[in-house]
Design a protein around this nucleic acid. Structure first.
Ligand SMILES: [Zn+2]
Ligand SMILES: [Zn+2]
Ligand SMILES: [Zn+2]
Ligand SMILES: [Zn+2]
Lengths: 139, 139
DNA sequence: CACCTTTTTGACAATGATTATCATTTGCTT
DNA sequence: AAGCAAATGATAATCATTGTCAAAAAGGTG
Protein backbone atom coordinates (compact mmCIF):
# COMPACT_ATOMS: atom_id res chain seq x y z
CA UNK A 1 0.00 0.00 0.00
CA UNK A 2 1.98 2.91 -1.33
CA UNK A 3 0.53 5.88 0.42
CA UNK A 4 -1.07 8.18 -2.10
CA UNK A 5 -2.09 11.33 -0.21
CA UNK A 6 -5.81 11.94 0.23
CA UNK A 7 -7.20 14.54 -2.12
CA UNK A 8 -10.02 16.94 -1.54
CA UNK A 9 -11.28 16.61 -5.07
CA UNK A 10 -14.31 14.67 -6.37
CA UNK A 11 -12.39 12.12 -8.39
CA UNK A 12 -8.94 10.71 -8.12
CA UNK A 13 -7.08 10.51 -11.39
CA UNK A 14 -3.61 9.49 -12.41
CA UNK A 15 -2.76 13.14 -12.99
CA UNK A 16 -3.97 14.36 -9.63
CA UNK A 17 -2.16 11.61 -7.82
CA UNK A 18 1.01 12.59 -9.63
CA UNK A 19 0.64 16.21 -8.59
CA UNK A 20 0.08 15.20 -4.99
CA UNK A 21 3.16 13.03 -5.01
CA UNK A 22 5.20 15.81 -6.57
CA UNK A 23 4.01 18.23 -3.92
CA UNK A 24 5.17 15.84 -1.22
CA UNK A 25 8.60 15.65 -2.74
CA UNK A 26 9.56 19.29 -2.31
CA UNK A 27 9.40 21.98 0.32
CA UNK A 28 9.85 24.73 -2.19
CA UNK A 29 7.42 27.24 -3.60
CA UNK A 30 7.24 26.67 -7.35
CA UNK A 31 5.05 28.08 -10.09
CA UNK A 32 2.46 25.97 -11.88
CA UNK A 33 4.78 25.87 -14.88
CA UNK A 34 7.68 24.72 -12.77
CA UNK A 35 5.62 21.98 -11.19
CA UNK A 36 4.53 20.94 -14.65
CA UNK A 37 8.11 20.80 -15.84
CA UNK A 38 9.10 18.82 -12.79
CA UNK A 39 6.30 16.33 -13.35
CA UNK A 40 7.24 15.89 -16.97
CA UNK A 41 10.89 15.46 -16.08
CA UNK A 42 9.95 12.68 -13.71
CA UNK A 43 8.02 10.82 -16.36
CA UNK A 44 4.49 11.96 -15.66
CA UNK A 45 2.56 12.73 -18.81
CA UNK A 46 0.30 15.56 -17.77
CA UNK A 47 -1.06 18.67 -19.41
CA UNK A 48 -0.15 22.14 -18.26
CA UNK A 49 -3.80 23.15 -17.90
CA UNK A 50 -4.39 20.21 -15.62
CA UNK A 51 -1.52 21.25 -13.39
CA UNK A 52 -2.95 24.75 -13.16
CA UNK A 53 -6.42 23.44 -12.35
CA UNK A 54 -5.22 20.94 -9.78
CA UNK A 55 -3.02 23.37 -7.92
CA UNK A 56 -5.78 25.94 -7.84
CA UNK A 57 -8.27 23.44 -6.54
CA UNK A 58 -5.85 22.30 -3.87
CA UNK A 59 -5.18 25.88 -2.90
CA UNK A 60 -8.89 26.41 -2.34
CA UNK A 61 -9.15 23.43 -0.06
CA UNK A 62 -6.07 24.56 1.82
CA UNK A 63 -3.94 21.59 0.85
CA UNK A 64 -1.42 23.89 -0.74
CA UNK A 65 -0.40 27.45 0.00
CA UNK A 66 -0.26 29.98 -2.79
CA UNK A 67 1.78 33.16 -2.77
CA UNK A 68 2.75 35.71 -5.36
CA UNK A 69 6.38 36.49 -6.07
CA UNK A 70 7.73 39.96 -6.84
CA UNK A 71 7.11 39.45 -10.54
CA UNK A 72 3.48 38.68 -9.87
CA UNK A 73 3.58 34.97 -10.61
CA UNK A 74 1.75 32.59 -8.32
CA UNK A 75 3.83 29.99 -6.48
CA UNK A 76 2.55 26.87 -4.77
CA UNK A 77 3.78 24.36 -2.25
CA UNK A 78 2.05 21.84 -0.02
CA UNK A 79 0.80 23.29 3.22
CA UNK A 80 2.52 21.99 6.29
CA UNK A 81 0.08 23.43 8.78
CA UNK A 82 -3.55 23.30 7.77
CA UNK A 83 -4.86 23.70 11.27
CA UNK A 84 -3.74 27.24 11.86
CA UNK A 85 -3.61 30.43 9.92
CA UNK A 86 -0.02 31.26 9.03
CA UNK A 87 2.37 33.07 6.75
CA UNK A 88 5.68 32.32 5.08
CA UNK A 89 9.33 33.24 5.01
CA UNK A 90 10.45 32.26 1.53
CA UNK A 91 13.85 32.25 -0.18
CA UNK A 92 13.84 34.52 -3.21
CA UNK A 93 16.51 32.42 -4.81
CA UNK A 94 15.46 28.80 -4.44
CA UNK A 95 11.92 28.91 -3.11
CA UNK A 96 12.67 27.12 0.15
CA UNK A 97 10.24 28.30 2.79
CA UNK A 98 9.19 27.95 6.39
CA UNK A 99 5.76 28.58 7.81
CA UNK A 100 5.47 31.13 10.54
CA UNK A 101 2.72 31.81 13.03
CA UNK A 102 2.36 35.20 14.55
CA UNK A 103 -0.41 35.74 17.06
CA UNK A 104 0.92 39.25 17.44
CA UNK A 105 0.60 40.24 13.79
CA UNK A 106 -2.86 38.82 13.52
CA UNK A 107 -4.06 40.96 16.37
CA UNK A 108 -2.25 43.95 15.02
CA UNK A 109 -3.89 43.53 11.62
CA UNK A 110 -7.42 43.20 12.88
CA UNK A 111 -6.89 46.07 15.28
CA UNK A 112 -5.90 48.40 12.44
CA UNK A 113 -9.16 47.66 10.67
CA UNK A 114 -11.30 48.85 13.54
CA UNK A 115 -9.18 51.90 14.09
CA UNK A 116 -9.92 53.15 10.58
CA UNK A 117 -13.49 51.97 10.26
CA UNK A 118 -12.86 49.25 7.71
CA UNK A 119 -14.88 46.04 7.82
CA UNK A 120 -14.10 42.56 6.55
CA UNK A 121 -10.38 43.21 6.91
CA UNK A 122 -8.00 40.66 5.46
CA UNK A 123 -4.25 40.75 5.53
CA UNK A 124 -1.51 39.61 3.22
CA UNK A 125 1.85 39.14 4.80
CA UNK A 126 4.79 37.50 3.11
CA UNK A 127 8.43 37.60 4.10
CA UNK A 128 11.22 36.85 1.66
CA UNK A 129 14.96 36.60 2.06
CA UNK A 130 17.88 34.36 1.25
CA UNK A 131 17.98 31.01 3.00
CA UNK A 132 21.14 29.88 4.71
CA UNK A 133 22.32 27.88 1.70
CA UNK A 134 21.68 30.65 -0.83
CA UNK A 135 23.24 33.22 1.46
CA UNK A 136 26.45 31.18 1.44
CA UNK A 137 26.49 30.72 -2.34
CA UNK A 138 25.93 34.38 -3.14
CA UNK A 139 27.24 37.41 -1.29
CA UNK B 1 0.60 79.97 -9.76
CA UNK B 2 -1.07 76.61 -9.98
CA UNK B 3 1.27 74.43 -8.03
CA UNK B 4 2.52 71.64 -10.26
CA UNK B 5 4.21 69.11 -7.94
CA UNK B 6 7.94 68.61 -8.31
CA UNK B 7 8.88 65.49 -10.26
CA UNK B 8 11.85 63.25 -9.80
CA UNK B 9 12.27 62.73 -13.50
CA UNK B 10 14.87 64.30 -15.84
CA UNK B 11 12.43 66.27 -17.95
CA UNK B 12 9.06 67.73 -17.25
CA UNK B 13 6.55 67.16 -19.99
CA UNK B 14 2.91 67.93 -20.44
CA UNK B 15 2.09 64.24 -19.93
CA UNK B 16 4.06 63.88 -16.73
CA UNK B 17 2.55 67.02 -15.31
CA UNK B 18 -0.88 65.67 -16.10
CA UNK B 19 -0.15 62.41 -14.32
CA UNK B 20 1.12 64.27 -11.28
CA UNK B 21 -1.98 66.42 -11.19
CA UNK B 22 -4.19 63.37 -11.54
CA UNK B 23 -2.36 61.66 -8.71
CA UNK B 24 -3.01 64.66 -6.50
CA UNK B 25 -6.70 64.53 -7.24
CA UNK B 26 -7.40 61.14 -5.75
CA UNK B 27 -6.59 59.19 -2.64
CA UNK B 28 -7.45 55.90 -4.25
CA UNK B 29 -5.28 53.08 -5.47
CA UNK B 30 -5.92 52.69 -9.19
CA UNK B 31 -4.31 50.62 -11.90
CA UNK B 32 -2.24 52.17 -14.68
CA UNK B 33 -5.13 51.58 -17.03
CA UNK B 34 -7.58 53.25 -14.69
CA UNK B 35 -5.31 56.26 -14.31
CA UNK B 36 -5.02 56.38 -18.07
CA UNK B 37 -8.77 56.28 -18.47
CA UNK B 38 -9.19 58.97 -15.85
CA UNK B 39 -6.67 61.20 -17.60
CA UNK B 40 -8.37 60.75 -20.93
CA UNK B 41 -11.76 61.44 -19.41
CA UNK B 42 -10.46 64.70 -18.06
CA UNK B 43 -9.21 65.81 -21.44
CA UNK B 44 -5.56 64.85 -21.23
CA UNK B 45 -4.31 63.27 -24.43
CA UNK B 46 -1.76 60.77 -23.24
CA UNK B 47 -0.63 57.35 -24.33
CA UNK B 48 -1.16 54.28 -22.21
CA UNK B 49 2.51 53.31 -22.38
CA UNK B 50 3.45 56.72 -21.08
CA UNK B 51 1.17 56.33 -18.09
CA UNK B 52 2.75 52.97 -17.33
CA UNK B 53 6.25 54.36 -17.61
CA UNK B 54 5.53 57.44 -15.56
CA UNK B 55 3.86 55.57 -12.72
CA UNK B 56 6.67 53.06 -12.62
CA UNK B 57 9.28 55.77 -12.53
CA UNK B 58 7.45 57.58 -9.77
CA UNK B 59 7.13 54.35 -7.83
CA UNK B 60 10.88 53.91 -7.97
CA UNK B 61 11.51 57.35 -6.60
CA UNK B 62 8.96 56.80 -3.90
CA UNK B 63 6.55 59.45 -5.07
CA UNK B 64 3.83 56.88 -5.47
CA UNK B 65 3.12 53.64 -3.68
CA UNK B 66 2.48 50.50 -5.66
CA UNK B 67 0.63 47.45 -4.43
CA UNK B 68 -0.78 44.36 -6.04
CA UNK B 69 -4.45 43.51 -5.76
CA UNK B 70 -5.84 40.00 -5.36
CA UNK B 71 -6.00 39.55 -9.12
CA UNK B 72 -2.33 40.37 -9.44
CA UNK B 73 -2.71 43.78 -11.02
CA UNK B 74 -0.54 46.65 -9.83
CA UNK B 75 -2.27 49.64 -8.29
CA UNK B 76 -0.78 53.07 -7.71
CA UNK B 77 -1.54 56.16 -5.69
CA UNK B 78 0.51 59.10 -4.56
CA UNK B 79 2.46 58.49 -1.40
CA UNK B 80 1.39 60.55 1.54
CA UNK B 81 4.34 59.72 3.72
CA UNK B 82 7.66 59.52 1.96
CA UNK B 83 9.68 60.01 5.08
CA UNK B 84 8.86 56.75 6.78
CA UNK B 85 8.40 53.15 5.76
CA UNK B 86 4.72 52.21 5.88
CA UNK B 87 1.97 49.92 4.67
CA UNK B 88 -1.65 50.32 3.60
CA UNK B 89 -5.19 49.48 4.50
CA UNK B 90 -7.04 49.60 1.21
CA UNK B 91 -10.70 49.23 0.29
CA UNK B 92 -11.19 46.27 -2.02
CA UNK B 93 -14.21 47.94 -3.52
CA UNK B 94 -13.26 51.52 -4.28
CA UNK B 95 -9.51 51.69 -3.71
CA UNK B 96 -9.66 54.26 -0.91
CA UNK B 97 -6.70 53.72 1.37
CA UNK B 98 -4.95 54.95 4.46
CA UNK B 99 -1.26 54.62 5.25
CA UNK B 100 -0.32 52.85 8.42
CA UNK B 101 2.89 52.76 10.35
CA UNK B 102 3.66 49.87 12.60
CA UNK B 103 6.92 49.84 14.51
CA UNK B 104 5.74 46.59 16.02
CA UNK B 105 5.31 44.71 12.75
CA UNK B 106 8.61 45.92 11.42
CA UNK B 107 10.44 44.51 14.38
CA UNK B 108 8.45 41.30 14.20
CA UNK B 109 9.33 40.86 10.53
CA UNK B 110 13.04 41.41 10.92
CA UNK B 111 13.11 39.21 13.99
CA UNK B 112 11.62 36.28 12.09
CA UNK B 113 14.45 36.43 9.58
CA UNK B 114 17.14 35.93 12.18
CA UNK B 115 15.23 33.17 13.88
CA UNK B 116 15.26 31.06 10.73
CA UNK B 117 18.66 31.98 9.39
CA UNK B 118 17.47 34.00 6.43
CA UNK B 119 19.41 37.06 5.32
CA UNK B 120 18.33 40.15 3.40
CA UNK B 121 14.79 39.76 4.64
CA UNK B 122 12.10 41.93 3.11
CA UNK B 123 8.46 42.04 3.99
CA UNK B 124 5.25 42.65 2.13
CA UNK B 125 2.30 43.57 4.27
CA UNK B 126 -0.97 44.84 2.87
CA UNK B 127 -4.33 45.05 4.55
CA UNK B 128 -7.59 45.19 2.64
CA UNK B 129 -11.18 45.59 3.71
CA UNK B 130 -14.28 47.60 2.98
CA UNK B 131 -14.15 51.28 3.81
CA UNK B 132 -16.95 52.87 5.79
CA UNK B 133 -18.77 54.04 2.68
CA UNK B 134 -18.54 50.72 0.85
CA UNK B 135 -19.55 48.84 3.97
CA UNK B 136 -22.74 50.86 4.07
CA UNK B 137 -23.54 50.33 0.39
CA UNK B 138 -23.02 46.59 0.45
CA UNK B 139 -23.79 44.16 3.24
C1' DC C 1 15.59 82.65 -31.36
C1' DA C 2 17.75 78.69 -34.14
C1' DC C 3 20.43 74.61 -33.26
C1' DC C 4 21.73 70.47 -31.22
C1' DT C 5 21.61 66.47 -28.34
C1' DT C 6 19.10 63.55 -25.46
C1' DT C 7 14.85 62.16 -23.63
C1' DT C 8 10.17 61.19 -24.21
C1' DT C 9 6.21 59.93 -26.56
C1' DG C 10 2.73 56.81 -28.53
C1' DA C 11 0.82 53.72 -31.90
C1' DC C 12 1.52 49.20 -32.45
C1' DA C 13 3.48 44.61 -31.97
C1' DA C 14 5.09 41.19 -28.82
C1' DT C 15 5.31 38.78 -24.46
C1' DG C 16 3.87 35.52 -21.20
C1' DA C 17 1.21 33.78 -17.47
C1' DT C 18 -3.24 32.35 -16.88
C1' DT C 19 -7.92 31.02 -18.59
C1' DA C 20 -11.41 29.36 -21.75
C1' DT C 21 -12.88 25.86 -25.31
C1' DC C 22 -14.56 21.65 -26.32
C1' DA C 23 -14.10 17.10 -28.23
C1' DT C 24 -12.36 13.02 -26.16
C1' DT C 25 -11.26 10.16 -22.29
C1' DT C 26 -11.89 8.44 -17.72
C1' DG C 27 -13.70 7.60 -12.82
C1' DC C 28 -17.26 5.76 -10.57
C1' DT C 29 -21.91 4.18 -9.67
C1' DT C 30 -25.64 1.00 -10.85
C1' DA D 1 -21.09 -3.61 -19.05
C1' DA D 2 -23.63 0.81 -19.49
C1' DG D 3 -24.30 5.58 -18.46
C1' DC D 4 -23.29 9.97 -16.82
C1' DA D 5 -20.85 13.56 -14.91
C1' DA D 6 -16.22 15.04 -14.18
C1' DA D 7 -11.60 15.45 -15.89
C1' DT D 8 -8.17 15.91 -19.42
C1' DG D 9 -5.29 18.30 -22.79
C1' DA D 10 -4.25 20.34 -27.14
C1' DT D 11 -5.18 24.61 -28.58
C1' DA D 12 -6.93 29.25 -28.89
C1' DA D 13 -8.04 33.31 -26.39
C1' DT D 14 -7.31 36.85 -22.75
C1' DC D 15 -5.15 40.66 -21.06
C1' DA D 16 -1.94 43.29 -18.20
C1' DT D 17 2.41 44.67 -19.08
C1' DT D 18 6.58 45.39 -21.91
C1' DG D 19 9.28 46.18 -26.20
C1' DT D 20 10.01 48.78 -30.63
C1' DC D 21 11.29 52.71 -33.00
C1' DA D 22 10.35 56.73 -35.78
C1' DA D 23 8.66 61.17 -34.78
C1' DA D 24 8.09 64.97 -31.40
C1' DA D 25 9.44 67.72 -27.52
C1' DA D 26 12.53 69.37 -23.70
C1' DG D 27 16.42 71.92 -22.21
C1' DG D 28 20.86 73.77 -22.81
C1' DT D 29 23.88 77.01 -25.58
C1' DG D 30 25.29 81.19 -27.89
ZN1 LIG E 1 0.52 26.39 4.93
ZN1 LIG F 1 17.59 29.65 -0.87
ZN1 LIG G 1 3.33 55.82 0.89
ZN1 LIG H 1 -14.55 51.66 -0.42
Amino acid sequence: MSDAPQPALPRMTRQRAAVLVALESSEDFLSAQQWHESLRDHGSAIGLATVYRTLQALAETGEVDAVRDAAGEVLYRRCGNRTRHHHHLRCRECGAAVEIEGPGVEEWASGIGERYGYSHVEHMIELTGLCRRCTTKEG
